[in-house]
């Protein structure tokens, strides 16, 4: 009987303690972002969509070889005047990509990189399968600003 009473009272006390914790939390600032209105700043190393600087590319095909999901397809040609290899077509399959960043790591000229676009939604399925990396404005519809790894700060919360 006495044990029962102490159990009930200690139980009530523990519940009150828990209520105290939630009460304190009610007055903390919210940690969430209002997403479409506020957007987080991406970190410097963030791995978004695969992007290419076509002038830098020497068509060495290392990225194509290392890609674990075969998301990249490259054809190249040698310029007869300068004897330099350059890509003719460079197609990126956005659906197969697993954003591992190996292509970026392996690239000898830092031509291929993963930009900071994370809202990779397309209206048509076919558009996503064949993204022409040689085109300059390939992600223009996804990012209003020019895509670049921009911020170093940890201030992703406003």
């Amino acid at each position: 009987m006495f044990k029962m009473i102490t159990y009930v009272f200690s139980g009530l006390l523990s519940i009150l303690k828990g209520l105290g914790i939630t009460w304190n939390n009610m007055f903390r600032k919210a940690v969430t972002l209002q997403y479409p209105l506020q957007k987080p700043v991406m970190t410097e190393r963030f791995r978004g969509l695969v992007d290419l600087i076509p002038e830098k590319c020497i068509a060495c095909s290392q990225c194509v070889k290392i890609c674990p999901t075969a998301a990249l397809d490259l054809t190249s040609a040698v310029n007869p005047e300068t004897k330099k290899k350059s890509p003719c077509t460079f197609v990126f399959n956005g659906e197969l990509c697993c954003f591992c960043g190996l292509c970026q790591e392996v690239c000898p000229t830092s031509a291929i990189f993963l930009n900071n676009i994370y809202e990779a939604a397309y209206y048509k399925h076919e558009d996503m399968l064949k993204i022409d990396l040689l085109k300059v404005d390939k992600y223009a519809h996804l990012a209003p600003k020019k895509a670049c790894p921009c911020s170093k700060t940890s201030e992703t919360r406003k």
Partner: peptide, 14 residues
Amino acid sequence: KVSAKVQNRLGPMI
């Protein structure tokens, strides 16, 4: 709103 406050969220805002 109460649940959002307790959980450090904002709840419906739009």
